[in-house]
């Protein structure tokens, strides 16, 4: 079974994340980045599937130079090869354009049996790239899988919805997005780190994919950020030490704020 895993390079959530003042895009250059933690679950799941049978795991990222770190981490975990789509023109792309680039890259790699993605990226957290990608590839999407079974011909997943827990089934090829409930991602071993250095990584531009630069990028996004403002810091609150009356004081606060 051949699998493509889409991984994203994101600013570290522990760092001070910010926007570029000039164009209101996420600053991915001046902030330390890493493989989106939620995509580690996708890499892990793909590796488990391939290890249980046979096949190859290709990791795919769309992003700036530093995004090669995300590929490197996935290769260290055990993926077989990487594809990095990197083009100035992609800067500032929205989910629609990102999904377009991913779809064309996957077609160029060769349609695999499964495309696996994270549930959402830790920076944008729109969580819509996977479903758009499936729409563009014309394959069924089994999203937010918290449990996954793969057979030769299809997938079956548990999806915990708001009102019910669903079992969703689809034939192959399919796209699956996985939640952080699905597995426990492995840490790269020393052997894995050494082996990753020899694994092939292809670097593609939009021209390699036959995508017109007018179809992507900030200027061609179908939504426009008009303004970005840091939320005013929260007013410093009152903190009391419980000296046997903490609960009563808390109730007093709630009454004062008219919650009771």
């Amino acid at each position: 079974m051949n699998i493509v895993v889409c991984v994203k390079y994101v600013p570290d959530a522990q760092a001070d994340r910010t926007f570029n003042a000039s164009d209101n895009t996420t600053d991915r250059v001046n902030v330390d980045g890493l493989l989106s933690e939620l995509d580690e679950y996708a890499v892990e799941e793909a590796l488990k599937i391939v290890e249980a049978g046979e096949g190859e795991v290709t990791v795919l990222t769309v992003g700036p130079d530093q995004a090669s770190d995300a590929i490197k981490k996935a290769l260290q975990m055990g993926a077989d090869k990487g594809v990095h789509v990197n083009d100035e023109a992609i800067h500032g792309s929205d989910a629609l354009a990102t999904s377009l680039v991913l779809a064309e890259a996957i077609k160029k790699i060769g349609m695999p049996d499964l495309v696996v993605t994270g549930m959402a990226s830790t920076d944008g957290t729109m969580g819509v790239v996977p479903i758009m990608l499936a729409e563009r590839l014309g394959v069924p999407a089994v999203t937010f899988a918290s449990e996954l079974t793969v057979s030769g011909s299809g997938v079956s997943a548990r999806r915990d919805g708001d009102a019910a827990s669903l079992t969703v089934e689809a034939g192959l090829p399919a796209l699956v997005s996985v939640t952080d409930q699905i597995n426990e991602p492995r840490y790269p071993s020393f052997k894995g780190i050494m082996a990753a250095k020899k694994k092939p990584v292809e670097n593609w531009t939009l021209a390699d994919l036959g995508i017109d630069s007018g179809a992507v990028g900030l200027a061609n996004a179908w939504t426009k950020v008009e303004a970005v403002a840091a939320r005013p810091p929260r007013a410093v609150g009152t903190i009391v030490k419980d000296e046997g009356d903490g609960g009563a004081k808390l109730a007093g606060f709630l009454a004062e704020r008219k919650f009771i």
Partner: peptide, 23 residues
């Protein structure tokens, strides 16, 4: 506590029952 409007430093097993009773 960096976020709170009101915080109680204490054991929830003591603070919550008292607060519940008060409410």
């Amino acid at each position: 506590f960096e976020l709170v409007d009101f915080g109680v430093v204490g054991d929830l097993f003591a603070v919550l029952p008292q607060a519940t009773g008060e409410v």
